[in-house]
Each structure stands twice: as structure tokens, then as C-alpha cells.
């Protein structure tokens, strides 16, 4: 299992700002190892975010997103105490979900 994400969700006025730091290799599939063999691609393909179960963002990523990806977005209609949940799925089918309370 991958390392936990660092998520911060803060309410500013009527907007909730969410910042996420994920832990992932994000291997492009274009690099070669010392023996000249291509290192297979391994990257996050899909990210979904929900606020109290309601989807607020979904993203599809390619290998061009940096290692240990960072994501920030804002949504309206959130309140303090709401639960923001982020899930990612990589191209090996591995998943990770983390949750944070809006402050």
C-alpha cells in the first residue's frame, strides 16, 4: 500500500480550497535502467475528490504529472466539518483513499 496523502482543506469565505500531496513514483515508461531495459510505466491514472460523498473533481492523469503529485482545486458549497475524500487509482490497479475534515 502506498503512503498516505497529505490533504489540506480550508474554508475561505464560501470556497473550500483543497491541496493534496500524493506519494507516487509516477514512472513514465520512457526511462531506462542501468542495463538499458525500459522501466515500465507506473503512474496515477485517475483521481477523484468528493465532499460529503458529492463529487467535486475528477481527473485523468498521464505519466507527465510529476513524481509525488501535487493537486490543488477549489469548490463552493462546502462548510466546516465537511469530509473531503480523495481517491487515486494507478495503472497497476492500486488504490488509495484518504479523508480530511474541512477547517
Amino acid at each position: 500500500m502506498a503512503d498516505p496523502m497529505k490533504i489540506r482543506a480550508t474554508l475561505q469565505g464560501d470556497t473550500v480550497e483543497v491541496r493534496v500531496l500524493m506519494q507516487h513514483e509516477m514512472e513514465t515508461g520512457q526511462r531506462k535502467d542501468a542495463a538499458g531495459k525500459t522501466i515500465p510505466a507506473w503512474h496515477i491514472q485517475q483521481v477523484t475528490a468528493t465532499n460529503n460523498g458529492k463529487p467535486v473533481l475528477s481527473a485523468q492523469w498521464g505519466p507527465a504529472v510529476s513524481k509525488n503529485p501535487f493537486l490543488s482545486f477549489k469548490f463552493k458549497g462546502g462548510a466546516k466539518g465537511d469530509k473531503v475524500q480523495i481517491t487515486w487509482t494507478d495503472n497497476k490497479g492500486e488504490k488509495r483513499t484518504d479523508e480530511v475534515v474541512v477547517s
Binding site: T15, P55, V56, L57, S58, A59, Q60, W61, G62, A64, V65, S66, P69, F70, L71, S72, F73, K74, F75, K76, G77
Partner: peptide
């Protein structure tokens, strides 16, 4: 590199690396 679906209520403002 990345594509983001923005549902209603979410600001069309995303950041990544």
C-alpha cells in the same frame, strides 16, 4: 499531461505539477 472534469460548484481553477 492531465485532464480535469469540473462539476458545477467547483471553481474552474486547478493546479498541479
Amino acid at each position: 499531461a492531465a485532464s480535469f472534469m469540473i462539476p458545477a460548484g467547483t471553481d474552474p481553477n486547478v493546479g498541479t505539477r
